Computed example of a mutant assay.
Amino acid sequence: MSFEDLVAEAAAVSVDGWDFSWLDGRATEERPPWGYQRLMGERMARASVALDIQTGGGEVLAGVPRLAPTTVAVEAWPPNRRRAADHLLPRGAHVVADDGEPPFPLRANTFDLVVSRHPVRAWWDEIARVLAPGGTYLSQEVGQGSGAELVEFFLGPQPWADRNPQAARAMAEAAGLEVVDLRTARLRTEFLDIGAVVYFLRKVIWMVPGFTVDAYRPRLRDLHEKITADGPFVAHTTRFLIEARKPRWARDGDRGDT
């Protein structure tokens, strides 16, 4: 396919939800060795009341074999929320609207499991507030400088935000949680054609803020020519897994229910 055909195809496809299957055969992403969805499923099978923060389209949560008897998913973006409802309501879960920032529309000391995959930001005080005493928070986060090679191809050198696991540990502990597991991984991603790049940047909107095909067409053409001449464009991502527990003696009702 020509540059124009690849770009037009990727610009027309829906990017709602958090399903990346459109990239099958067009991009590859190395996965973290710990298997976040498997770990989440193991903990969900033991939970009674569970919460998924920033659920996106609910795809990850819907992929676990067994949900907790009471499972709540929160999501801010309406198109994703509709997809989450399609995925999760048939499983008996509740989908709740929020605005992506504190306070969560949830009561304190409620959930024995809270999960979140790739949160834009972890609001640690709120996580601690809604966790029941003895409850667990499990999250896979995007680390510092993820996709730097791709971002900087379009934007030039960037002052990367501090998203490192030790900072996450410090914030969790400051919120009164005990970190019981912390792991990191550096992973390889390959984009096999320019359509994959266009789709990815349309979907992961914070990578190149304000990305549109028209605004970046000359740079997209440069990258298309590079891929055609040299093969897949390689970028690297970082991920970290963090698991934290609220002490059994702790209560946060004095912070106020919402």
Results as ranks from 00 to 15, higher is better:
Met44His: 12
Pro102Cys: 13
Phe191Ser: 07
Ser14Val: 07
Gly92Asp: 06
Leu138Gln: 04
Thr212Glu: 04
Ser116Asp: 06
Glu9Lys: 13
Asp24Cys: 00
Ala84Asp: 00
Thr184Cys: 08
Leu88Gly: 06
Gly100Leu: 13
Pro165Ala: 14
Thr110Phe: 10
Glu75Ile: 05
Glu243Met: 15
Val120Met: 09
Thr189Phe: 09
Ala132Glu: 11
Glu42Leu: 12
Glu30Gly: 01
Pro247Trp: 12
Tyr199Trp: 15
Asp125Gln: 13
Phe111Ile: 07
Leu201Thr: 01
Asp214Asn: 01
His118Asp: 06
Ser146Ala: 10
Gly92His: 03
Val49Asn: 01
Ser139Ala: 15
Asp19Glu: 05
Gly56Met: 01
Gly145Pro: 11
Arg251Cys: 03
Pro218Tyr: 01
Ala172Gln: 11
Leu192Arg: 12
Val60Trp: 05
Ala84Val: 04
Leu187Tyr: 05
His118Gly: 07
Thr228Lys: 15
Asp214Cys: 02
Ala215Arg: 15
Gly156Asn: 09
Asp5Arg: 13
Ala167Val: 03
Val213Arg: 02
Ser116Val: 02
Ser116Lys: 01
His236Glu: 13
Gly41Ala: 06
His94Ala: 10
Arg66Ser: 13
Ala161Thr: 09
Trp249Tyr: 11
Val15His: 04
His87Ile: 00
Pro165Ser: 12
His118Phe: 15
Leu223Arg: 07
Phe154Gln: 03
Pro103Ile: 11
Ala45Met: 04
Gly147Ile: 08
Val49Pro: 00
His236Trp: 14
Pro133Asp: 02
Ala85Asn: 04
Ala168Met: 02
Arg107Ile: 07
Asn80Met: 00
Pro79Gly: 07
Thr228Ala: 15
Ile227Tyr: 12
Thr212Gln: 04
Ala68Val: 09
Gly143Gln: 09
Arg82Gly: 01
Ser116Thr: 10
Phe20Ser: 08
Asp222Tyr: 02
Asn109Ala: 11
Arg169Glu: 10
Asn80His: 13
Ala27Gly: 05
Ala10Glu: 03
Ala84Leu: 05
